[in-house]
């Protein structure tokens, strides 16, 4: 068994035994369920009104009741919700070692520190992508149940690419969360960072600089700026890539070099 496989096994076991996969799955499944509810409202506004549901808000959020609108909502939910939920996963995977003081059991081992950090990032990535696949599956089920028009195999394929793309573009933002979970030795600093970057991303997008701001890029990719507004260019993807790379380098450096005196 290679040390990387051993480290991945250890991280996967810790993940499986915790409640975090359950809670993140429940949290993320709210997106397709909420989308389904909006479709129900938009399909029959009168009936929805009779049930006490407000159709105007649903119309603003989703538009019309069809498969393209449903997938568009789901992509935006993955970009926005993914930023938070993937951060929670990252905060837990890295921050718990400091919060529970188990970090000292990971530093003087034949399995190197960089192997452990790589295994942690690998588990985060797999976990985030599985979660996205999970909500895409739920989304397909929910949309089928509410029977909305506009389904086509091509649309499903395009939506799948878009949703997985939004998730993949969110992942490069995680190394900075990992760095703050490590250097901040716990949960609060990275959580504060997540909220802070979320607010900044909204401001950057409103000001029209979102394509230059890494934390706004997944949202803009998902179409959060409105239909047909493709503001991202090659520079956006390069910036996002460089942000991820910088975060990774800083996290590895910190694990290898920082004093672990607590």
């Amino acid at each position: 068994m290679t040390s990387f496989r051993a480290a991945v096994w250890a991280e996967a076991l810790k993940m499986r035994r915790s409640m975090v996969p359950f809670f993140t799955a429940v949290g993320f499944s709210m997106a397709p369920l909420a989308g389904g509810l909006f479709m129900v409202i938009l399909k029959d506004p009168e009936a929805a009104r009779a049930m006490g549901l407000i159709s105007a808000k649903a119309q603003v959020l989703v538009g019309v009741a069809d498969w393209p609108a449903y997938f568009s909502f789901l992509t935006q939910a993955v970009a926005a919700g993914g930023g938070i939920l993937f951060s929670i996963i990252t905060i837990w995977v890295f921050g718990r070692e400091f919060s529970d003081r188990t970090i000292k059991e990971l530093l003087a081992l034949p399995t190197t520190r960089e192997t452990i950090v790589t295994a942690k990032f690998f588990v985060i990535m797999v976990w985030a992508l599985v979660l996205t696949l999970f909500i895409f599956g739920i989304g397909l089920g929910v949309a089928s149940l509410v029977s909305i028009p506009g389904w086509s195999a091509g649309l499903v394929q395009a939506a799948f690419t878009k949703i997985m793309g939004a998730a993949l573009l969110t992942l490069p933002l995680m190394p900075f969360v990992a760095l703050l979970s490590s250097a901040g030795r716990g949960y609060l600093p990275p959580f504060g960072w997540t909220i802070f970057t979320l607010v900044l991303a909204n401001i950057a997008a409103i000001l029209g600089w979102g394509d230059w701001f890494p934390w706004a890029i997944p949202g803009l990719f998902s179409g959060a700026a409105g239909p047909g507004t493709d503001v991202l260019g090659l520079h956006s993807y390069v910036i996002l890539f460089l942000t991820g790379l910088t975060g990774l380098a800083a996290t590895y450096w910190w694990w290898l070099n920082a004093d672990q005196a607590k």
Partner: peptide, 21 residues
């Protein structure tokens, strides 16, 4: 000492065993 509280004693030691190769 520190240990993963959600893992059993055996699992904690198994994690250490694997990380020791």
């Amino acid at each position: 000492p520190a240990a993963y509280s959600e893992l059993s004693v055996r699992e904690n030691l198994d994690v250490a065993r694997r990380l020791h190769g």
